[in-house]
Write a protein that binds this DNA or RNA. Structure first.
Lengths: 146, 146
DNA sequence: TAAGATACTTGCATTTTGCAAGTACTGCTA
DNA sequence: TAGCAGTACTTGCAAAATGCAAGTATCTTA
């Protein structure tokens, strides 16, 4: 993932600039974990089945912060742990991920992990989004200092 | 874009496998050109403002073919030219790109290229999709042998 | 039949990735 | 309070991917 310095956009196209931020094999997996699986800590991202390397994870968390997609805070009960959470900009990636799930479920070989979520998306996409966002709100109330 | 060999999926998650195909800075720009800008030839992709390198473009066209997203055919009037076109699987990426455009227009610095398209998306997204797909159909009728 | 167009391939320096190991800070435990 | 474990990283290095310039192969056109 070269040149994702947001200094000067390489492209006169939103898609190009969007890809400079999320156009790689790892970034959206972290966002997935934050959105769908209630993960908020470094070690939790590491535990995902794709087994991201520690240096890549650190790099992506940094880039996501710089891009305004996530923020971080120390764990309120343990200062040796960090909590990562999505900004509104990050939460807005939900729509992109949903479309990727729909595309993948239709055209890619079957895999299990997202099946339950996919069912909820098919049944009632708006409700699904609302539930995902509500869950994040609840988490924030419990864990974030204001 | 490492390991986009579709032999064995690295991930039990559709999003992971989806990213193995479209998770890089170039692939979706080619799809964008095919979907939105009526481009169908190697030299046309090269002419896009992001100035993709020739070896990368050749590689991405190959991968897109292998993934079943595009197909190719010789130009009916000139056998030294090739035409690339989207399969149904490729056309289905439209929904993902639309969400990326919406996200980018909301959170990224202003750029010009997609402004007109974005207006049409905002006005009537379903109509927009239909028009994009119709245009591709028309092109296929004119240029593709069956 | 030579020149130009088109679609690539090759070589090489630079950048990014992937893996293993090491470090720094916090909290717990004896 | 010394030592060990947990958490979040950083570092070093080999391998892979990228970016750039140059070269090649196959048409087509003059």
């Amino acid at each position: 993932m070269p040149n994702s310095s947001r200094d000067i956009p390489r492209s006169p196209c939103v898609i190009g600039n969007c890809l400079d931020i999320i156009g790689d094999r790892w970034t959206l997996l972290v966002v997935r974990d934050l959105l769908f699986f209630g993960k908020h800590e470094y070690k939790e991202f590491l535990a995902s089945p794709e087994s991201i390397a520690t240096n890549i994870l650190a790099d992506r968390l940094k880039r996501l912060s710089e891009a305004g997609i996530i923020k971080e805070q120390l764990h309120p009960e343990n200062r040796s742990r960090k909590l990562y959470y999505l900004t509104n900009q990050g939460k807005a990636l939900l729509s992109i991920l949903i479309e990727m799930i729909k595309w993948g479920e239709k055209f890619l070989p079957e895999v299990e992990m997202m099946k339950p979520l996919f069912k909820r998306i098919k049944t009632n996409p708006d409700l699904f989004k609302k539930e995902i966002l509500n869950k994040l709100d609840q988490w924030e109330v419990s864990y974030l200092n204001e």
